[in-house]
């Protein structure tokens, strides 16, 4: 099978195989790509397909001996009628939109501050990597401790001065979601800044010089020259963050566990609870599939928006 043909490719001097060079090369490349493709199909696509299949069943490991009953689209309908699920869906969108917007705004400012080449900026850059590389569970725990009302570094004073209410921000139904959004912003703004900075540094210097020689002000240079050229990088940073923010799990799970009530519940947190704590496999699979659909949709919208912006800015 495939392996024998790989053997003959390994020794091209042996002309016995009778294949032309271009064919042997094609086979060689296929042989290199096949292991990865097969692996991903078996270990990622196959479970994905199973997940789609399970989502049409009432399938609970803790109930009815784990028997499966076909229920059609009932699990998806429940996603809409179940107020907890609906809240999780809305929360996830709010979280993604707010977190990514703030991360982009702060990240762009940071990147512009760090643009100048030099030792000082390189050292600052290295320190900025710390929040990005710290284990997300630890990030969650740090903020949980800092915001604790009885002894937390911030929490105590916030409660003492009446800013957060006596039980603290993370236990407040109105403030918990903004707080977990801000934790995400703390964690990931440096990443956005790093990507944008890499984009800024790859801009052609002569164009910038020409613009300032033509008497363009700093703001004009930024708006008319830098921003249009930076668009692909902006796109990369936004798509990356939108996808990851939409899948947020660790920090929410650690800080609030989705509470108080359902106020910080996200699709991932709810799906994990349903699937791996209550073993409600059918419903949890439906949640997972909806999450995939939403991410695909967000990516498509982004691609369209960016293409339109690109046409407008660069006239292509």
């Amino acid at each position: 099978m495939a392996t024998t043909s790989v053997g003959s490719i390994d020794f091209p001097q042996r002309k016995a195989s009778g294949l032309r060079f271009s064919d042997r090369r094609r086979l060689f490349l296929v042989a290199l790509a096949v292991p990865a493709v097969v692996y991903v199909v078996l270990v990622a696509l196959w479970p994905l397909a199973q997940g789609i299949w399970y989502s049409f069943f009432d399938y609970n490991l803790l109930r009815g001996g784990g028997r499966r009953t076909f229920v059609g689209l009932a699990n998806y309908a429940e996603l809409w009628t179940d107020s907890t699920a609906r809240r999780a869906l809305i929360n996830t969108f709010v979280f993604t939109f707010a977190a990514v917007t703030l991360e982009f705004a702060f990240g762009l400012c940071l990147a512009l501050l760090l643009w100048r080449e030099g030792r000082f900026n390189r050292i600052c850059l290295a320190f900025l990597l710390i929040p990005v590389t710290i284990t997300p569970v630890v990030v969650g725990l740090i903020f949980r401790a800092l915001l604790a009302v009885d002894y937390g570094f911030f929490g105590y004073y916030l409660a003492e001065w009446g800013i957060s209410g006596p039980r603290g921000f993370l236990a407040s139904t109105t403030a918990a979601l903004p707080v977990v959004i801000l934790i995400d912003v703390w964690e990931w703004t440096p990443l956005v800044a790093l990507i944008l900075l890499a984009g800024l540094k790859s801009l052609p210097g002569d164009i910038l010089e020409a613009a300032s020689a033509d008497g363009a002000t700093a703001l004009q240079r930024f708006r008319l020259v830098v921003l249009p050229l930076l668009l692909p990088t902006v796109f990369l940073a936004l798509v990356l963050r939108v996808m990851d923010a939409f899948r947020v799990f660790d920090t929410i799970f650690v800080t609030t566990g989705g509470g108080p009530g359902d106020t910080t519940n996200s699709l991932m947190v709810y799906g994990v609870k349903q699937g791996l704590q209550f073993f409600n496999i059918g419903f949890a699979s439906a949640i997972g599939n909806v999450a995939i659909l939403c991410i695909a949709l967000l990516c498509a919208v982004f691609t369209l928006l960016i293409r339109r912006a690109d046409v407008k800015a660069n006239g292509q």
């Binding site: 996808m243 699937g275 999450a291």
Partner: peptide
């Protein structure tokens, strides 16, 4: 197309594969 397939796999939320994988 295959390259984009790999990129798409990166974006799949882990919850969608984790439950069937757990059972497997």
């Amino acid at each position: 197309v295959v390259a984009y397939f790999f990129l798409a796999i990166r974006t799949v939320p882990i919850i969608a594969t984790l439950i069937p994988f757990y059972l497997m």
